Computed example of a mutant assay.
Amino acid sequence: MYTPHNFRTGAGAYARLGVETQAMSASPHQLICMLFDGAVTAIGMARHHIAKGEVAAKGQAISKAVGIVANGLKASLDAKAAGPAGAELVANLSALYDYVVRRLLQANLHDDARALDEAEALLESVASAWRQIEH
């Protein structure tokens, strides 16, 4: 028999499968876009959880956003592939991602929606530029 809990669990598994399938067939350019989307979605969830006073869920959402920025976006930067002309851009993006992570951590510690807004705006700005690049 289906219960609301089983439905949510099954729906979550189905959603994860869809994302995994999309990721497996995505180009490197599309994968970076997916990382930006995932980080922004996690920030939106954190904002929701702050408003509802859901401390644990807020922490999980912010941890997810931090993981995506630090272990996805920042880790994907490749100064060697960028060459001498792109080395400065890679260094600037790396510093920006470090700053975004700091703002996310501050948002977590202080329930600071403005820090979430700033982190989201910075990521959206870079994501917008990334999406305009021909792949």
Rank of each mutant, 00 (worst) to 15 (best):
residue 1 M to N: 13
residue 2 Y to G: 07
residue 2 Y to P: 15
residue 3 T to R: 08
residue 4 P to T: 05
residue 4 P to M: 06
residue 4 P to C: 07
residue 8 R to M: 13
residue 8 R to N: 11
residue 9 T to D: 14
residue 9 T to F: 11
residue 12 G to N: 12
residue 12 G to C: 03
residue 12 G to H: 10
residue 15 A to W: 09
residue 16 R to I: 04
residue 16 R to H: 06
residue 16 R to V: 07
residue 16 R to A: 08
residue 17 L to A: 13
residue 18 G to N: 09
residue 20 E to S: 09
residue 21 T to K: 03
residue 22 Q to H: 14
residue 22 Q to A: 15
residue 22 Q to R: 15
residue 23 A to V: 15
residue 25 S to G: 06
residue 25 S to T: 13
residue 27 S to I: 06
residue 29 H to V: 05
residue 31 L to V: 08
residue 31 L to E: 06
residue 31 L to P: 10
residue 33 C to A: 13
residue 33 C to S: 15
residue 35 L to Y: 10
residue 35 L to R: 11
residue 36 F to L: 10
residue 37 D to W: 09
residue 38 G to T: 12
residue 40 V to W: 10
residue 40 V to P: 05
residue 40 V to N: 11
residue 42 A to Q: 12
residue 42 A to S: 15
residue 45 M to K: 15
residue 46 A to W: 09
residue 49 H to Y: 14
residue 50 I to K: 07
residue 51 A to I: 09
residue 51 A to V: 12
residue 52 K to N: 11
residue 53 G to M: 03
residue 53 G to W: 02
residue 54 E to S: 12
residue 55 V to S: 12
residue 55 V to W: 05
residue 58 K to E: 04
residue 59 G to N: 07
residue 59 G to H: 03
residue 60 Q to E: 10
residue 63 S to Y: 05
residue 66 V to D: 00
residue 67 G to H: 00
residue 68 I to F: 03
residue 68 I to G: 01
residue 68 I to R: 05
residue 69 V to T: 02
residue 69 V to K: 02
residue 71 N to G: 14
residue 73 L to I: 02
residue 73 L to H: 00
residue 74 K to Y: 00
residue 77 L to R: 04
residue 77 L to N: 04
residue 78 D to E: 00
residue 78 D to T: 01
residue 79 A to E: 10
residue 80 K to A: 14
residue 80 K to S: 13
residue 81 A to V: 07
residue 82 A to F: 02
residue 82 A to R: 02
residue 82 A to G: 01
residue 85 A to K: 13
residue 89 L to E: 08
residue 89 L to P: 04
residue 94 S to I: 02
residue 95 A to L: 13
residue 96 L to A: 11
residue 97 Y to Q: 00
residue 98 D to L: 01
residue 99 Y to H: 14
residue 100 V to G: 04
residue 103 R to Y: 01
residue 103 R to L: 12
residue 110 H to W: 07
residue 111 D to W: 06
residue 111 D to C: 09
residue 113 A to I: 11
residue 113 A to F: 05
residue 115 A to D: 07
residue 116 L to I: 02
residue 116 L to A: 01
residue 117 D to I: 01
residue 117 D to A: 10
residue 120 E to P: 05
residue 122 L to D: 00
residue 122 L to I: 11
residue 123 L to A: 02
residue 123 L to G: 00
residue 124 E to W: 03
residue 125 S to R: 15
residue 127 A to P: 01
residue 129 A to M: 07
residue 131 R to T: 00
residue 133 I to H: 01
residue 134 E to C: 04
residue 134 E to I: 05
residue 134 E to W: 03
residue 135 H to D: 10
residue 135 H to A: 14
